[in-house]
């Protein structure tokens, strides 16, 4: 019974962490049709934005929930202005440009910070469940992911910025004609996506550590989740993460982490064969 509880908590955690690493990419891809190949490195920067301030004596929660998203969000705005803006509508070119950015960031981090990773223990201690123990941080990751998704839903659905952003993505010419400064909306949306990536990288840093190449661990899963989710940012990410995360973790429990990864990929292939436009190409249409 208590083992079943641990099992379910771990499945929920896998779903939450998949949604967490994907949501920043989903905002940038889903809303702007920009394929950000440097997404993994945005997560890596978020991780360093936690680890380095904490080493300098900053409180870990402030580093994680404030410094990481603000720094990476600001970096995202700069990247949008310098790299992405001249390439809107040119998908292949943005792939190349962001891939170059990804290599540059990995190279810089390798040269400046190196691979002497600091070990850390996730905060919040542990929880006893029957005869078993589970890290308190696992529950935190699940809760904070739910909070991010809820805030994003309200932000897109209920605020003026959300309305303008969704309008701009649907029909930029019409939005501009109605007096919306579409350039600023693009910059803000890209910044939001980057900030969410930074936040995700920061939240995962105390569990998984940070090294310059850590982005490679996340990027494939994030892309698969976003593509499987389809065009709708929130409903797509949530439904794809729920399905793929559950498949991955259940199989990991029954077999090994390697087979778990294979099962995730197999599930994504079958899904895209049946629903070529992703889950939200068929279901949850018209959501956000």
């Amino acid at each position: 019974m208590d083992y079943a509880a641990i099992f379910l908590i771990q499945v929920a955690y896998a779903i939450a962490s998949l949604a967490l690493i994907s949501v920043g990419l989903a905002v940038i891809y889903g809303m702007m049709r920009v394929i950000n190949f440097a997404h993994g490195e945005f997560l890596m920067l978020g991780g360093y934005a936690v680890i380095l301030p904490v080493q300098a004596g900053v409180n870990i929660w402030i580093a994680m929930l404030v410094i990481a998203p603000v720094t990476v969000g600001a970096f995202g705005v700069v990247v949008e202005r310098l790299v992405i803006r001249p390439l809107y509508g040119r998908v292949i070119d943005t792939v190349l440009a962001t891939w170059g950015l990804s290599l540059l960031l990995i190279g810089l981090a390798s040269a400046v910070l190196g691979y002497y990773q600091e070990g850390s223990k996730p905060p919040l201690g542990s929880v006893q469940i029957g005869a078993y123990r589970e890290s308190g941080y696992t529950f935190f990751v699940i809760a904070v992911t739910l909070a991010i998704m809820a805030a994003l839903y309200l932000g897109l659905k209920r605020t003026r910025f959300g309305l303008l952003a969704r309008g701009t993505m649907q029909n930029p010419a019409m939005a501009a004609g109605l007096g919306v400064d579409t350039g600023r909306i693009y910059a803000a949306t890209f910044g939001l996506g980057a900030a969410l990536s930074g936040l995700a990288g920061g939240i995962l840093a105390p569990i998984s550590g940070v090294v310059p190449v850590i982005g490679a661990t996340y990027i494939a899963k994030a892309f698969i989740t976003v593509i499987s989710g389809g065009a709708t940012v929130l409903a797509g990410t949530a439904s794809a993460a729920a399905m793929l995360g559950a498949v991955n973790q259940v199989v990991t429990f029954l077999a090994t982490p390697v087979v778990g990864e294979v099962a995730l990929l197999a599930a994504a292939i079958i899904l895209l064969r049946l629903l070529p436009a992703g889950i939200t190409g068929r279901l949850f249409r018209g959501g956000v």
Partner: peptide, 14 residues
């Protein structure tokens, strides 16, 4: 470095 994360997660679970 990936595997080194085990030690933190192990201690974090108590």
């Amino acid at each position: 470095p990936g595997h080194a994360a085990f030690y933190g997660q192990w201690a974090g679970t108590g």
